[in-house]
Design a protein around this nucleic acid. Sequence first.
DNA 1: TGTGACAAAATTGTTTACAATCAGTTCCAT
DNA 2: ATGGAACTGATTGTAAACAATTTTGTCACA
Lengths: 221, 221
Amino acid sequence: MATATRASVAVNATDVADQIRAAIFAGELVPNQRLVEADLAEMYGASRGHVRTALSELTVEGLVERIQNRGARVRSVPVEEAIEIVEVRSALEALCAARAATRITDAEAEELRQIGRSMQAAVETGDQAAYAQGNTDLHSTLIRLSGQKTAAATIDRLRAQAVRFQYRLFAKPGRSQQSLPEHLAIIDAVCAREPEEAARAMREHLMSVGAAIEESVRSGS
Amino acid sequence: MATATRASVAVNATDVADQIRAAIFAGELVPNQRLVEADLAEMYGASRGHVRTALSELTVEGLVERIQNRGARVRSVPVEEAIEIVEVRSALEALCAARAATRITDAEAEELRQIGRSMQAAVETGDQAAYAQGNTDLHSTLIRLSGQKTAAATIDRLRAQAVRFQYRLFAKPGRSQQSLPEHLAIIDAVCAREPEEAARAMREHLMSVGAAIEESVRSGS
DNA sequence: TGTGACAAAATTGTTTACAATCAGTTCCAT
DNA sequence: ATGGAACTGATTGTAAACAATTTTGTCACA
């Protein structure tokens, strides 16, 4: 733990991109923070050329913003766009939930119900971290069970852009009490192998997430 | 028109990426075709460095595939993935259609109906090119009217990956006769400002596109 | 005190040269 | 003939040097 911000050494452009992406995801690099090539090169033990192409790639992914001759910054996603992202995720995760409902095996259904039980327990004991973990597990499990790799990749990319707002949301008191029944409804529908209902429940859940983001911004700042 | 494959001169990495993207879209660069850096550099009048970062960006976009020390190729999208792409587009364009239905003005509705009329005329006169144009116009207009930029960008990126299959489809005899009523149903629903029905019609249409791709591949090769 | 011109520093953009790797070929021993 | 070691040409990977640009700092002057 000598160098706090560096997990492992990056050798090529892809590695550097991965590290920067992880740092943004972890909140170590915050929106609008300048990304000076020389600094990043030293920090990750890579050449400046590698850092440069990594920044190009991250720009395509929408995580980084570049201005000619004025360098790169962590892109600050405006609220309106964050809501758009949730709306798109809503459509895609609804698709995934529906597909999961048509493909799920009995063993996988049990796995899903287990996630539901642990989320319920987390709400009862007031363990926010455990609830957040359950939330992540549920969404990623459904995406995996859908077998839709294109949707999975798209959702991943979009979610990375909106990390900033995810944190805000879990900090909101009473949020988990509200979203728990939504999550359980999704699990029930998928386990009951009802694609239409699973999609509907997922859409409803993510629309509520969108509304919560909108509201938290309206009141927060 | 001295150099057939080059439209304008590329000076930086973004320009090169644009040119290569356009060439792939136009079918000048076909799947699995090798992309030799030195050749591209000469062809587009750019340095090899710029070509290199352009290839990195296009790899992130999913248009190009790179293998370490063995260069870049135009990525060949397998059929299964093309179907996934249509499925994702189905979810996203349904979202756009629904949003368009809630936001559309009278003038925009007339614009949409006009597209419908020209598509109908194209089918009656057997003008395939005009029908393809109408198809493009309709989809892009709905996406624009939705005001959902995130969805728009995502759809664009996905469609670029699946160009190969779009061509195939329009070559199929009787395809336009089948899809015309689907298109008209979408237009009617959006103009009637019925989001649910618009989304349903769009989903149905794109599912039929997916089925047609699957079938054309099954029989074609 | 404020403002403009100028100089210096920091940073990014671009090119070039060189190193590493791979595919194909030749050639020799078996 | 056959298999493999060594060679060759083509191509990609890497780094470092240089050029261009922006930003920051300084100072004279109103």
